[in-house]
Design a protein around this nucleic acid. Structure first.
Length: 424
DNA sequence: ATGCTCCTGCGAA
DNA sequence: CTAACGTTCGCAGGAGCAT
């Protein structure tokens, strides 16, 4: 029954520290795309009161005062380290669910309950020793409780030292502990639901655990009802091992500066569609339609605002970059209006299904299909070997005036020989 | 009444 | 010097439509 949630501490910051140990003990933040907002903070930065999602320009002053070191996010690096972490963790259980880039669930069913604390410490040591990434381990009987146990492990609650096993608590200890944790810490309870719960005098985890189930379900949803059950050690959310492919693929980006002309927007939409199509083929799926959307900057309240999207159905499901780009550009042309400062565009591939299940249509030319497949195959192979974007659609543009800002990126230490710093 | 698709809101990392 | 506020995914539930 028990399972573990293993979560990397301040993951992106820890990744930067692996390759730059001088960052140890110093305040470090990693910024989102476009160097927009904080997405990872070292403990030193958290102590300064800087919140998750805080815009960089708002914290820049305090950052200068305290010598905060800021990095642009380097997803190539984090993705590579994540794969290595997950690979090590997979050796500790027959069943693993990779939940996000920095955390996974491990099934511990059948393990000796007395040894789980020790096992958690062994897991922490293994990842620390081989990769230098610190992790915390939460152990409990449901996913929601394991997430909560992980929170306690990180905060050192209930005497935890990087590992917290709720199986070690008796009912009284659990009640005291849960009564001390704000309800917003519970997995599935976000800002809105927290606000509404507060009006019902439900402020702590213990309040929610002991709340009336029917009342929660009717006032909120069956989802929050499941959460209440899970807090009571009744499993409602199953462990999902890899295998189910995505249902949609989104590629969108804010621009480094605003863009006004259709030509520049077309370049970016072409580029985003190309990236999305690569993901699609990687999954072995085809898309039935393409959604393209554009919008101005809602934070610039004086600018005239405009946002619109359009879904363009394909004549038949496809994974061919050229066909997807064609559809996306047709949609863009239809929704584009001149006279606006555009800040963001995005491409969404919808109606995904496994390519293998697609029946060739009656009038399809099998030769055309084979040509398309082999062209895409060659493109993917070259880009994999020579680096993303080596071969592509000419309309992506070379200047890419719409490119995002990334002024503080660290090198791709693990995936690109050219970016390794040279000694001496 | 029932079953669908489309759209929006919410949460998570 | 200025201006600068993320991305990607799933789920649920209501609206709108057809049957």
């Amino acid at each position: 029954m028990p399972l573990a949630l293993v979560d990397c501490n301040n993951f992106y910051v820890s990744c930067e520290r692996v390759f730059n140990p001088r960052l140890e003990g110093k305040p470090v933040v990693v910024l989102s795309n476009n160097d927009g907002v904080a997405v990872a903070r070292s403990n030193e930065v958290k102590a300064l009161g800087i919140k998750m999602g805080e815009p960089w320009f708002k914290m820049e002053k305090i950052a200068r005062q305290h010598g905060i070191i800021a990095y642009s996010s380097n997803y190539t690096l984090y993705g590579d380290l994540s794969a290595r972490v997950m690979s090590i963790l997979s050796t500790f259980s027959p069943k693993q669910e990779i939940y996000s880039i920095d955390e996974c669930f491990l099934d511990l069913d059948g393990f000796d309950p007395q040894s789980l604390m020790t096992y958690g410490q062994i897991i922490r040591q293994a990842v620390k020793q081989s990769l230098g990434i610190p992790v915390c381990v939460g152990i409990a009987d449901t996913k929601t409780l394991a997430k909560l146990a992980n929170h306690c492990a990180k905060k050192g609650l209930a005497g935890a030292d990087g590992v917290c096993d709720f199986g070690r608590l008796n009912d009284g200890e659990r009640t005291v502990l849960f009564a001390s944790i704000p309800v917003g810490e519970v997995w599935g309870v976000g800002r809105r639901i927290t606000e509404k719960l507060l009006t019902m005098n439900i402020t702590t985890v213990e309040d929610l655990r002991t709340a009336n189930l029917e009342r929660i379900q009717s006032q909120f949803s069956v989802v929050l009802g499941r959460t209440v059950n899970e807090l009571n050690a009744i499993p409602c959310i199953e462990l999902e091992e890899a295998g189910t492919p995505r249902q949609q693929i989104m590629v969108s980006r804010s621009f480094g500066s605003s863009v006004t002309c259709l030509a520049d927007l077309s370049e970016s939409v072409t580029y985003f569609t190309t990236r999305a199509a690569e993901k699609l083929r990687h999954d072995g799926s085809v898309a039935a339609s393409v959604c393209v959307y554009i919008r101005t900057n809602p934070f610039k309240e004086d600018d005239p605002q405009y946002q619109r999207s359009m879904i363009v159905p394909l004549s038949r499901p496809s994974d061919d970059t050229t066909k997807l780009v064609q559809a996306a550009l047709a949609g863009l042309k239809a929704i584009y209006r001149s006279g606006y400062n555009y800040k963001k565009t995005g491409v969404l591939l919808m109606g995904l299904q496994p390519k293998a299940t697609i029946q060739p249509a009656l009038f399809d030319d099998p030769l055309e299909q084979a040509k398309s497949d082999s062209l895409m195959h060659v493109m993917d192979a070259i880009n994999k070997k020579m680096g993303q974007g080596c071969v592509g659609i000419a309309a992506s543009g070379i200047r890419q005036r719409w490119a995002m800002r990334r002024e503080r990126k660290s090198p791709n230490y693990t995936t690109d020989w050219n970016e390794l710093p040279v000694a001496g």
